[in-house]
Simulated assay, not measured.
Amino acid sequence: MALSAAPAAVAPVGQPTAPLSVKAVLPWAVFFGVLMMTLIYFVGAEQGAVSLISGENVHEWVHDGRHLLGFPCH
């Protein structure tokens, strides 16, 4: 069996990797936070008292997830 001549991309044992800074993580944390809040809105509140999209399509698409997460819908 032939071995690959490519160098390993893993840091050698015993050498610490560079820590992540808050500046590097903060934009991703904000992005995923907004994404999760949007998803929770569509699962939990869309087609309720406040509706951004008319019709029943969004309600039907997230109906089972709504019950699974404990949101009442009917």
Rank of each mutant, 00 (worst) to 15 (best):
A29P: 01
A5Y: 07
V50I: 11
M1C: 14
M1Q: 13
L69D: 00
L68Y: 14
Q15G: 02
V58G: 02
F31N: 05
A49T: 09
L52R: 04
V13F: 12
S4T: 13
Y41W: 06
R66D: 00
G14K: 04
G48S: 10
L35P: 05
P12Y: 04
L39N: 07
G44W: 03
V30E: 01
V50F: 12
Y41R: 05
V50D: 00
G44I: 03
S54R: 15
A11I: 05
L68I: 11
E60Y: 07
A45Y: 14
V30D: 00
E56Y: 12
V43W: 02
A24V: 06
A45K: 14
L26S: 07
V50H: 08
V13Q: 14
V43S: 07
A2Y: 06
A5D: 13
Q47P: 00
F32E: 09
N57T: 14
I40C: 04
K23M: 08
D64G: 13
H59N: 10
S21R: 01
V62C: 01
P19T: 03
E46K: 07
E56P: 02
H67T: 12
P16R: 08
H59F: 10
T17N: 13
S4E: 08
A9G: 10
H63R: 14
W61I: 07
A6P: 00
A5V: 09
N57V: 13
P7H: 05
E46Y: 05
F32Q: 07
A8M: 10
C73A: 15
M37R: 07
S54P: 13
T38G: 12
P7R: 07
G55S: 02
A49E: 15
A6T: 09
M1G: 15
L35C: 00
V22P: 04
G65M: 07
N57G: 13
C73M: 13
L69G: 04
A8W: 06
A2H: 08
V62H: 03
C73D: 15
E46H: 05
P12T: 09
S4M: 06
